[in-house]
Design a protein around this nucleic acid. Structure first.
Lengths: 238, 238
DNA sequence: GTCTATACCCAGATAGAC
DNA sequence: GTCTATCTGGGTATAGAC
C-alpha cells in the first residue's frame, strides 16, 4: 500500500516526452552529430539524476525502484541501465552530487577567519538557504547518514570530516585569541547542522506544527533569527 | 551490494532457537495450556517487533524484507505473517510503539509549569536520554518523518502535534507572565528536537567527527551542557 | 498453531533486434 | 541509443499439510 504502484493496465508511457532534444540545433560545425548526441546524453543523464535524487530523498535507497525512476523521466528502466551500470552506481552518483552541494554551503567560517560574529551569521544563513533551496539534497544525505552511511561512509570520511575539522579548528583559534568564549567546537558544529538541516529533513512535521501546508520564507527567517540569536549569545564574549 | 544477503547455500536456520518456551512451567492451574500459548505468542511477537524496529531504523521501510526480520528471530517469514497480517501492519505496530516511547520523554515542560529553567533543563536532559537509550526508536521516527510520513501522518497529527502545541502554550504563558523572554515557541521546540535527536539519528557521522567508534556518556554530557547553556541564555531574562 | 510448498509479482540486470 | 524479450532472484502473501 505504500507504493501506489501504477495500475499496470493503462500505460501513461509517452506522457512526458522529456526535454525536447536540440535536434535542429546546429549543422554547420565540424562534428555536429557527436556534439548533439553527447548533449542529449548529458540532458537525459541530468534528468535521471534529478528524478533519482527526488525519489531517493523521499523513500531511501531501498524504497525506490529503477522502473519508478525511469517512468519519471519518460524512459524505460533498460534505457536507464544503459546510462548507469547499476542502481547502486546511480545512487552513488546522486550522493556525490549531493555532497558537492552540501559542502558548497559550508565554507562561511573559513571565509571570515577574523570575524566570529559575521562568520557565524553567514554560516547559519547559508545552511538555512541550503535547506530551503535544496531540501531533497539534504534528505538524501540524511537518509544515508541515518542508515549509518553503509554506502558512502568512505566519501563522507574523506570529504566531510576534514571540512568539519577545519571549521572546528577555526573555532578553537578564535577561543585562543580571545575572540570568543572557549567551548567545544565539535558539538557546536553538530548543533549548527542539526538546527538548520531540520528545516529540510523534518519539513513535513514542522509544517504540521506551524499549521500550514508548507514552509514559507518567513518561517526560515524566523528560524534564522532564533538560531543566530542563540549561537551568538553563547559563543561571543559578554 | 547493500544487502549482504546470506549465501543462501548453508542455512543457519535453527541457529537462534529464540527464547526458550516456558513449556514445563505450570500444569496445575485452571487453563494452563491457553496461558502458556498466549505467553509464548507474546514473547515471539515482542521479539519480532524488536528485530523489526532495529532493521527499519537502519534501512527504512522499503529497505527491509520480511525474510530479513524473520531470520533475525529464528522464524520463517510465513510464521511472521501469521503473527502480523502484513508488512505494513507490522511497520505500523513498530511505529506505534516508537511513538509511545518518544512521547513519554516529552512531558518535562508540563511537569514544571512554573519553573522555566528547571523545566527546560529536564526537557533537554530527557530528550538526550531518549537519544542515548532508544536510538533505534529515534531513527525509525526520523526515517518516517524524512519520507514525509506517508504511513503515519495521521497518528503524528493526532498524538504529536497536540503535545507540541501544549508545550508551545506553556512557553507562551511563561512569556506572558514575564518568566522568560518573548520568543517563538514553535521554532524553539524545533530547535530542541533537532539538537537532541541528532545524537541518535546522526550518531554515525558524529562519531566520525569526534574520532571515536561510538558515542560515549561523556559526549552526551558535553552535548547537554552546550544545549542547556544555549537555551537558557536565550530563553531566560537577563 | 506452526511449518512446507507454492502462487504470483516485481525487482535488477542482460541479450539481441532494430 | 532505444526497444522487446527474457533471465533470475527475491518480494509479499496464501493454501494446505501436519
Amino acid at each position: 500500500m505504500k507504493n501506489p504502484a501504477p495500475p499496470s493496465s493503462v500505460k501513461p508511457k509517452a506522457a512526458k516526452p522529456r526535454a525536447a532534444k536540440p535536434q535542429a540545433a546546429e549543422t554547420t560545425g565540424a562534428k555536429p552529430k557527436a556534439v548533439k548526441v553527447s548533449q542529449a546524453r548529458k540532458l537525459l543523464e541530468a534528468d535521471i539524476l534529478a528524478a533519482a535524487k527526488r525519489l531517493f530523498a523521499q523513500r531511501g535507497f531501498g524504497g525506490v525502484s529503477l522502473d519508478h525512476i525511469a517512468r519519471e523521466v519518460g524512459a524505460s528502466k533498460q534505457n536507464l541501465l544503459y546510462y548507469f551500470p547499476s542502481k547502486e552506481e546511480l545512487y552513488r552518483r546522486v550522493l556525490h552530487g549531493v555532497l558537492d552541494v552540501w559542502l558548497s554551503y559550508m565554507d562561511a567560517l573559513s571565509q571570515r577567519p577574523d570575524d566570529p560574529e559575521q562568520a557565524l551569521r553567514e554560516y547559519i544563513a547559508g545552511k538555512l538557504r541550503f535547506s530551503r533551496e535544496h531540501p531533497d539534497d539534504s534528505r538524501v544525505y540524511a537518509n544515508e547518514v541515518v542508515s549509518g552511511a553503509p554506502i558512502f561512509s568512505a566519501e563522507i570520511a574523506a570529504r566531510v570530516i576534514p571540512a568539519v575539522q577545519a571549521d572546528v579548528a577555526i573555532l578553537n583559534r578564535w577561543a585562543e585569541r580571545g575572540l570568543c568564549r572557549p567551548l567545544d567546537g565539535r558539538h557546536l558544529m553538530v548543533l549548527l547542522w542539526a538546527s538548520t538541516q531540520v528545516y529540510a529533513d523534518w519539513a513535513s512535521q514542522i509544517s504540521l506544527v506551524l499549521g500550514k501546508p508548507a514552509l514559507e520564507e518567513a518561517d526560515f527567517a524566523a528560524a534564522e533569527a532564533l538560531i543566530v540569536d542563540m549561537v551568538l549569545r553563547t559563543v561571543l564574549n559578554d
